[in-house]
Design a protein around this nucleic acid. Structure first.
Lengths: 168, 168
DNA sequence: TCCAAACCCTTGGATGTCCTAGTATATTGC
DNA sequence: GCAATATACTAGGACATCCAAGGGTTTGGA
């Protein structure tokens, strides 16, 4: 954190790669490194916007997912698959959200292995308010040009499909 | 994580946003969420490629940075600024790299507050080998079209500049 | 000259992610 | 029907990141 650098460190890295004879992979290296850094910046903005609600991004994502579920409840494994995170991460998030009274665990009616997670009334309220803040403070001020947003959705969508995230 | 989903969960989220009347921020939301997920996929690939070297991405980045420093040594605060991570993260990475014998700490010759980190001979060798593996297994098979790589570098470069990463 | 402010690094605490392993419940196959 | 396999969730451990706070060093103004 700190003041802006006088030069783009990723562009410098790309030049270093080229100078060492790795020109064939210098550009993908720079693009991938830029994705890592961009994610870091965006995550910091998101966490900052969610802090007043006592939420982290991981917990917010779970709340948001539940708020869109028709029944208002989802099995943990379903949430894990849809959020594309490890099951233990969902357990962790649910533990904390449950402690904050925003979600509740309940046994699955027919499958004894499965645990359902459900929004509480307060959870639904918090999800709504947090989404409003994220929309206005982060998504609404992303700093991406509209045309670039479309490019990102296209490029990263293709990447995620090729990586095996989904078949569509 | 499991088998591919039948549908793109991010595209679904974008539709949900639009259905709730947040059309103005639905696309940026989708783009940002896609960046988060793409980072996760790429990080997993990188960590997997580095595992045989006993390196994580954070430690590799530090090794690579040092390998490009003319003198082969850098102050910790310099590394923190160039890698754009918190100073404590550098302390953590140096602790582990030092324990593995890949870098060494030394006092700054004139400024008693500053600690220099320097590659050991083994550290230089490991950095070289790890870079070769990353180049061939990750950067060389990113799955991005060359034209899209250029788009990413342009779009994310502009974003990072606007976010205050650098002035160029 | 001397003390306050700025700077550098480290420690300790909170979170999140993943992996491995373990327990409990379902499903499948013989 | 029963044993073997598969699935669901949780516990414990390793890492990384950030923040807050503390101790040592420099710098700069009174």
């Amino acid at each position: 954190m700190g003041a802006p650098l006088p030069r783009d460190p990723i562009a410098d890295a790309q030049r270093n790669w080229e100078d060492r004879g790795w020109s064939d992979v210098a550009a993908p290296m720079a693009a991938i490194t830029a994705i890592m850094r961009t994610q870091q910046i965006l995550l910091a903005r998101i966490e900052s916007a969610l802090k007043p609600f006592g939420l982290t991004f991981a917990r917010y994502e779970l709340l948001a997912l539940l708020s869109f579920a028709r029944s208002g409840a989802l099995p943990m494994n379903k949430a894990s698959a849809l959020l594309q995170v490890h099951p233990t991460s969902v357990t962790n998030a649910v533990d904390r959200l449950e402690g904050a009274g925003l979600v509740a665990r309940s046994p699955h009616p027919t499958d004894g292995r499965t645990t359902l997670i459900e929004l509480t009334a307060e959870g639904r309220t918090v999800a709504k308010r947090a989404t409003a803040v994220l929309n206005s403070e982060v998504f609404g001020q992303s700093g991406f040009e509209p045309a670039d947003v479309d490019q990102l959705i296209r490029i990263l969508g293709s990447f995620r499909r090729n990586a095996g995230d989904f078949t569509d």
